[in-house]
C-alpha cells in the first residue's frame, strides 16, 4: 500500500518535473529532503531520550498502568485486541493528551512508546495490528485545543482577534476524529486489509496439515 503510493509520488514527480522543465529542482530536492530527514531524526534524539527516560519512571512507578485502568471503559472497544490494563493504553492516552494540549515534543516520544508496547503484542513484527492502525488514525485526526503555531501566524499577519479560530478548529478536529475511528473500524474488517496476509497462507496451511496428520 505505502509502496504503491511511494512509487506514485516519485514517478509522477519525475514525469511532471520533466514536462514542466523543473527536473533540476526535482533532482536537487532529493539531496535536500534526504538531508532534512536525517536532521529531523537526529534532532529528535535529545528530547526523545529525555521523555523516554521520564516515561520509564512513570511506567515503573505504576502511573501508566493506572491511567490504562482508568480509561478501560473507552479503550476496551477502541483497542479490542489489547488487554485493558496494558501499558500501551496508558501511553496512547498520554500521547493523545500531549497532542491535544499542543506539547508536541513530549507527544512524539509517548507515541513511540505506545507503538513499542503495541509491537510487543504483535505476532507479525512486519505487519501493523488493528490497534496500531486505530492509534495512528486517532493521532492523524490531530485533535488540539490550542493551535498555537497557527494563531501565531494569524497574529503576525495583523489579526486583531486570532483566537476566534480555536472553536472552529476544535470542532473540525472532532469531526475528523469521529470519521477516522469509524473508517478504521470498518476497514479493519475488510478482507483486503486483513492482518494475516497471503504470504502466511502456506505456512498456516502446512501447520494445519501437520496437525491433521497427527
Amino acid at each position: 500500500m505505502l509502496g504503491y503510493i511511494w512509487f506514485f509520488l516519485i514517478i509522477t514527480a519525475l514525469i511532471i518535473g520533466g514536462v514542466n522543465g523543473k527536473i533540476d529542482a526535482v533532482v536537487q530536492s532529493i539531496v535536500n529532503s534526504a538531508q532534512l530527514a536525517v536532521e529531523i531524526s537526529i534532532s529528535l534524539i535529545g528530547v526523545m531520550a529525555f521523555w523516554l527516560g521520564m516515561m520509564k519512571l512513570a511506567e515503573n512507578s505504576g502511573i501508566i498502568t493506572e491511567i490504562s485502568k482508568l480509561l478501560k471503559p473507552i479503550t476496551k472497544r477502541l483497542f479490542a485486541d489489547v488487554p485493558p490494563d496494558h501499558p500501551a493504553i496508558g501511553h496512547i492516552a498520554m500521547n493523545f493528551s500531549a497532542n491535544a494540549l499542543g506539547v508536541t515534543n513530549a507527544a512524539t516520544p509517548m507515541g513511540i512508546k505506545a507503538m513499542d508496547e503495541l509491537q510487543k503484542l504483535n505476532p507479525d513484527k512486519k505487519v501493523a495490528t488493528n490497534a496500531m492502525c486505530t492509534f495512528l488514525a486517532i493521532n492523524t485526526a490531530g485533535v488540539q485545543f490550542i493551535p498555537a503555531s497557527i494563531i501565531a501566524i494569524l497574529a503576525a499577519a495583523g489579526a486583531k482577534n486570532p483566537t476566534v479560530i480555536i472553536g472552529p478548529t476544535f470542532l473540525s478536529t472532532l469531526i475528523a476524529l469521529i470519521s477516522a475511528v469509524t473508517v478504521v473500524k470498518i476497514l479493519e474488517k475488510l478482507p483486503f486489509f486483513r492482518q494475516t496476509a497471503s504470504c502466511h497462507c502456506e505456512e498456516t496451511q502446512s501447520v494445519n496439515e501437520a496437525i491433521q496428520k497427527e
Binding site: L2, M115, K126, V127, T140, S179
Partner: peptide, 23 residues
Amino acid sequence: YFGSVGISRIRHALIAGLVADIA
C-alpha cells in the same frame, strides 16, 4: 511511528489517516 518499530506493511492506517484529513 511505524518506522520506530520497523513496520513496513501498514494496512489501512494511511487510508484512515487521509480520511481523517479530508473530513
